[in-house]
């Protein structure tokens, strides 16, 4: 009797309690988001009232109106969007190409070269900040979008991820069959290999896009004219210039976050699986 009782306890009650605790715990990641959303619809005078109200007493769109009419918010959004798209497209191509070479060819120096790819992941960006800025200025790319794109179009983590995926997902026989049919090496890659690695490309696209869309320090130092700012730098600037107008700042934060959160919720499986493609199977 006691045995069945404790089994019911273990199989039903404990998981139920655990689920409940985890659901309540969701307050921690979600409340700051909801609070930001709610504050973006409040006039400044209502943000810091006590007791706090999650639902605005007098909701207003004034903060959003000002972002679009008084500030170049749309311009910043557009900059961020196209820079993220272009650099991600190029990063996919170059990562897949190099990852394929490391996965499926034997060539002299391969181990050394691959170790350089991995080693470059250990360089903190702070080390590059000063000398890269000096160089970009010298070659005349300061305040140019080239500086935001070109240095980052062949990311080492992308190459690593693609290599890990291609090793297991692409059969050698397929490559050989392509060669027997007379296809050149690049053609084999383009027409036979790429279609097989779509899941990895998807994951890389998501994470690379996210990285560029959210990047701050490099765009902060390298872009200077107001029309050329990336969204996070623009947001920091709004905060710097209108620091007491929290509603405006929160509106900007919401608009910057909404696209990423929406994409994440829609593609959450790819987001999460993509993280562990390269890392854990290696």
């Amino acid at each position: 009797m006691a045995g069945t009782g404790s089994r019911v306890w273990r199989d039903r009650a404990v998981p139920l309690a655990l689920t409940a605790v985890l659901l309540v715990g969701l307050v921690v990641p979600l409340l700051p988001l909801l609070w930001t959303l709610s504050s973006s619809f409040k006039p400044v005078s209502d943000i810091f009232i006590y007791p706090p109200r999650l639902l605005p007493a007098a909701a207003t769109l004034e903060n959003y109106r000002r972002l679009f009419t008084d500030l170049p918010f749309l311009r910043w959004f557009w900059n961020t969007l196209w820079v993220s798209v272009v650099s991600t497209g190029l990063a996919l191509f170059f990562s897949a190409l190099a990852g394929y070479a490391f996965a499926k060819y034997e060539f002299r120096g391969k181990t050394l070269l691959f170790n350089i790819v991995l080693g470059s992941l250990l360089v903190p960006f702070a080390v590059l900040l000063i000398p890269l800025f000096v160089m970009i200025t010298r070659i005349g790319w300061a305040d140019s979008f080239l500086a935001l794109i070109v240095p980052w179009v062949a990311p080492a983590y992308g190459i690593f991820l693609m290599r890990q995926y291609i090793v297991q997902a692409v059969p050698n026989e397929l490559i050989d069959a392509g060669r027997v049919d007379g296809a050149g090496e690049f053609r084999v890659f383009w027409t036979l290999v790429l279609p097989l690695v779509r899941p990895a490309l998807g994951a890389l696209a998501i994470w690379n896009f996210l990285g560029v869309y959210n990047s701050f320090l490099w765009p902060l130092v390298v872009m200077s004219s107001n029309d050329n700012l990336m969204l996070p730098v623009g947001l920091a600037q709004i905060y710097g210039n209108y620091s007491r107008e929290y509603g405006l700042v929160m509106g900007g934060a919401v608009l910057a976050a909404v696209p990423m959160v929406a994409v994440f919720i829609a593609l959450r499986r790819q987001f999460i699986e993509g993280l562990t493609f390269g890392a854990l199977k290696g």
């Binding site: 715990g25 969701l26 990641p29 979600l30 700051p32 988001l33 609070w35 930001t36 504050s39 943000i47 810091f48 996210l210 869309y213 959210n214 701050f216 969204l231 996070p232 730098v233 947001l235 920091a236 905060y239 929290y246 700042v249 929160m250 900007g252 934060a253 910057a256 976050a257 990423m260 959160v261 994409v263 994440f264 919720i265 959450r268 987001f271 999460i272």
Partner: peptide
């Protein structure tokens, strides 16, 4: 999904959220 959401936000957005 809920616990993972903060990861997709820009650190700048997060810092701004926490100012209030």
């Amino acid at each position: 999904t809920g616990y993972f959401i903060p990861v997709v936000l820009s650190p700048v957005v997060i810092a701004l959220m926490f100012t209030i």
